[in-house]
Structure formats: structure tokens, C-alpha cells
Design a protein around this nucleic acid. Structure first.
Length: 426
DNA sequence: ACTGATGCGTC
DNA sequence: GTCGGAC
DNA sequence: GTCCGACGACGCATCAGT
């Protein structure tokens, strides 16, 4: 598929704020692929729609280009100095629109002198595959001179793009595509186009949350059907999407959840999803980056104190004082977010992993098991240590109990508390 | 070898 | 992480 | 209530320029 077709979709999506209309644009676009049975680029199209090059679970580098660098690129390409471009940027509001504005002027001028380059001017020839491989090159370029190399590749791309295409190209590069759709809306569009019924959304949503690669899910859907999408399950080595909490006044907990419910400390640290396969420990961040290298001490304590050959679980890693008595605030932990001198800093800033959930044990998925069942299993398999504990969790029966739990939580340096329903399906 | 600008990812 | 807009 | 995007603080990595 040509990039101009995708650009047109971006443009359509951007033209409305109505979700239903966006879903309609998406499903029409997908139905067109369906008619032509042209699924070759489906995964790449999905990634680009998400404003990304690869799904988060692929540990692929970022572009390393953002607004300031793009201004340089536009400047080089158009001959307009960067100060002037910044002025236009303020007026236009975004870097993509700025480029579109400048280029459409320039190309008009150019066409007066150079009739031979009509194709270049219309910019309609760029294949998504080519765009994609060039973008990958930009992301993979590193080291001395990488700056210029990246800009060089980008200039090449811009010269093959129409102003409209350039607009979205630059937005993709700067991670500001913002056409109003993200995973949930894309899933709706896919569901409608390829299953005909919006009710099937849950199937795709579930598959995506357990294997967060929407490009791959789409491919399964179009090539093998919904039946195969249903079979997608949590796997070792593939991090699942994090369940996010929402903020609420804690006195509202009883109203919403009824009693009893479970309350846990909300810790001021960094969330980790841990995959243990034998001696092999992988730690994933909330955005599914593999950050195992950052916490060798955590990996070690898991290796030695989690009595399960294969297991996936979640916890919050928190900075501790040297006696492992007091939890320290997030800023202290953030010193651990580094690539070099990892061993030194891990001695300087000790941490404790507070485990709070179990996702898979052996070959058995725990994602649909009840909270108490998951907790019980965790208690069985984890030998608590200074550096590895289960998060404090209690059953709350009354407002009085809630109040006192909240107060102790705050006293001990927590951010607050988490409330979890004890219903089976949550 | 050092510094500032830029980019990135956590909360 | 928070916030607010659109639906 | 759901979804998306705009926003901020902080610390570290990388690279260009010197």
C-alpha cells in the first residue's frame, strides 16, 4: 500500500472528534483491504496508526529525533532558517503542520520551474514498506555522526512525500501522531470490518491485552479468523498489558465495591512484571520495556526465593534505607534508572520488591482466577526476605477499618491505598 | 575530557 | 503520574 | 464511565560542539 492512502486515513480521522465516526473511517479502510485481500502490510499499518514503528513488546529503539531535530531537518530541506521555522511552528501549533505549510509553498514554487518532477511533487509513490524500512534505519542509527545520518534519511523521505504525507511522517517520528485513535478505537474498527459485529470487540481486546502486539493480532484475525484470536493467551517472555488503577477518594470505596473488599498499600516505586523461566528472570516496565539489566539484585532475589520453575507475577520495586526498614520516595529509586555502574548504584540504593499479583504459574493462567486464589498461591511460592516481600493486603469490612488502614498506610510512607474487588471477574 | 542541548521513560 | 474535553 | 491527548517533575543517556 502507498503511504498517501494511509495519510488520507490520518487526515479523515483527524477531521472528527466523534468516536463512532472514527471507527467508521477505520472500518471502511480495513474493508477496503479485505476486498482486495491485500493484507501484506496490515501489521505495519496498525503500528503506524498507533504512531509507532513496532509494538512495545518488541524491544526496538526509538527514533532519537524530536522537535528540535526536525526543525533542523525542515530548515535544511527548505532553506528557511530555524528561527523562522520556530515562528511558523508557534503559529501552526505542531511540527507536522509546520512542515506541511512550508513544503506546500515550496513545492508550488518548484513546480513553476521544474515540470519534469511532477511525480516527486505529487509525492504519491512512496510505499509503506519503503517508508517503514527507512524509519527503522533512522531508529537503528547510532554513534558519532548519527545525527546527520538520521537527518539525511529523513530528507530522503521528505523528498518522496507530499506535504500532507510529510505532516504525518514528521508526527510519527516525533511520537505526536495524535489523530484521535489509539488501541481501543483501532480494535473497534478491526472488529467491525473483519467480524461484522461490534460485540466481538472483547475477544480482540482480550487477545491484545495478553499479547500486546496489535499488528500481530490483526494478522491472525485476517488470515486465520476470530477463532484463532480467541486462542491467544499469556505466554512466558511476552509481557501483558498492565491493569491500571483509577484514582478515587478512598471514602468512596465502600460505596462502589460494597463490603468486604481488599485494600493494599499503594507503593511509591516502579511497577515490574516478572517472568521467571527456570533461572532466567526478565523484568518488564509498565510500558513493557525489558529492564532486567537495571535490577540485577532483584533478579537474584527472585531466582533464589521464588519457589516456582515457571511463573509470571507483578510487583512494585521500592527504594529502601540500608536497614530495609523504611521505604524511600520515588526520586531515590530513580537513581537506579541507569545503564552504567548498575552494580555500584544497587549497593547505594537498596530496593525491595513488593509482590502483589500472580498472572501465570507453570502452564496455568491466573489472570481469570479470583483475587484470593492468586494471593494464596503467591504466599505459597514466595519466601519473604528483606528484599522480597508480599505487599500488605487486608480485608476491609467497615468504614472504620478502612480509615485506620489508610492512616497506617500513610504513616509508613505509602502513596495511599489500592482497593480491589473480591468478585470473581475483576 | 567536558558541557549543554536534546531525547526518553518513569511517576 | 494529573487533568480535562468529547462522547 | 471510556478514550484520548496535553501537561509536569525528575534523572539519566547520547551526541555535537568545544
Amino acid at each position: 500500500m502507498k503511504f498517501n492512502k494511509l495519510s488520507q486515513l490520518f487526515s479523515d480521522l483527524e477531521s472528527t472528534t466523534k468516536r463512532l465516526e472514527m471507527i467508521d473511517f477505520l472500518s471502511k479502510f480495513f474493508e477496503d483491504l479485505k476486498e482486495k485481500e491485500d493484507y501484506r502490510d496490515i501489521d505495519k499499518i496498525i503500528y503506524l496508526l498507533q504512531g509507532q514503528l513496532t509494538p512495545n513488546i518488541k524491544q526496538f529503539p526509538k527514533m532519537g529525533l524530536a522537535e528540535k531535530m526536525i526543525i533542523e531537518a525542515i530548515s535544511l530541506h527548505s532553506g528557511i532558517n530555524s528561527k523562522r521555522i520556530k515562528e511558523i511552528l508557534i503559529k501552526q501549533g505542531d511540527i507536522g503542520a509546520t512542515a506541511e505549510f512550508i513544503l506546500s509553498k515550496k513545492k508550488k514554487q518548484k513546480s513553476l520551474f521544474d515540470y519534469n518532477k511532477v511525480e516527486e511533487i505529487s509525492g504519491s509513490s512512496l510505499e509503506i514498506l519503503e517508508l517503514y524500512s527507512e524509519l527503522k534505519k533512522i531508529a537503528l542509527t547510532e554513534g558519532i555522526g548519527s545525527h546527520d545520518t538520521k537527518l539525511g534519511i529523513l530528507r530522503g523521505l521528505i523528498s518522496k512525500c507530499s506535504p500532507l504525507e510529510t505532516k504525518y511522517l514528521l508526527r510519527i517520528i516525533t511520537s505526536t501522531l495524535r489523530v484521535g485513535v489509539q488501541s481501543q478505537t483501532i480494535i473497534e474498527g478491526l472488529t467491525l470490518a473483519f467480524t461484522g459485529k461490534r460485540d466481538n470487540k472483547g475477544v480482540i481486546e482480550r487477545a491484545y491485552s495478553l499479547s500486546p502486539d496489535l499488528g500481530e493480532i490483526s494478522r491472525i484475525l485476517v488470515e486465520k479468523g476470530l477463532v484463532e484470536v480467541k486462542k491467544v493467551d499469556i505466554e512466558y517472555g511476552t509481557p501483558i498489558l498492565s491493569m491500571l488503577a483509577s484514582r478515587e477518594i478512598y471514602t468512596e470505596f465502600t460505596n462502589r465495591l460494597g463490603v468486604p473488599f481488599v485494600a493494599e498499600y499503594k507503593l511509591d516505586g516502579e511497577r515490574l512484571q516478572i517472568h521467571k523461566v527456570g533461572e532466567n528472570i526478565t523484568l518488564f516496565s509498565r510500558r513493557l520495556l525489558d529492564i532486567s539489566f537495571q535490577y540485577p539484585d532483584v533478579c537474584k532475589v527472585i531466582r533464589e526465593n521464588v519457589k516456582a520453575n515457571k511463573v509470571i507475577f507483578e510487583g512494585e520495586v521500592v527504594a529502601m534505607d540500608h536497614f530495609y526498614e523504611k521505604m524511600l520516595p520515588f526520586q531515590v529509586l530513580s537513581k537506579r534508572r541507569r545503564k552504567f555502574d548498575v552494580e555500584d548504584i544497587s549497593k547505594e540504593v537498596p530496593v525491595c520488591l513488593f509482590v502483589f499479583d500472580l498472572l501465570k504459574f507453570g502452564e496455568e493462567s491466573f489472570v481469570d482466577k479470583s483475587l484470593s486464589f492468586r494471593r494464596k498461591k503467591l504466599e505459597e511460592i514466595i519466601d519473604e526476605k528483606d528484599e522480597l516481600r508480599l505487599v500488605k493486603s487486608v480485608l476491609i469490612n467497615s468504614t472504620e477499618e478502612l480509615l485506620s488502614f489508610f492512616n497506617t498506610a500513610r504513616k509508613e510512607g505509602n502513596e495511599g491505598i489500592m482497593a480491589k474487588s473480591i468478585q470473581e471477574n475483576s
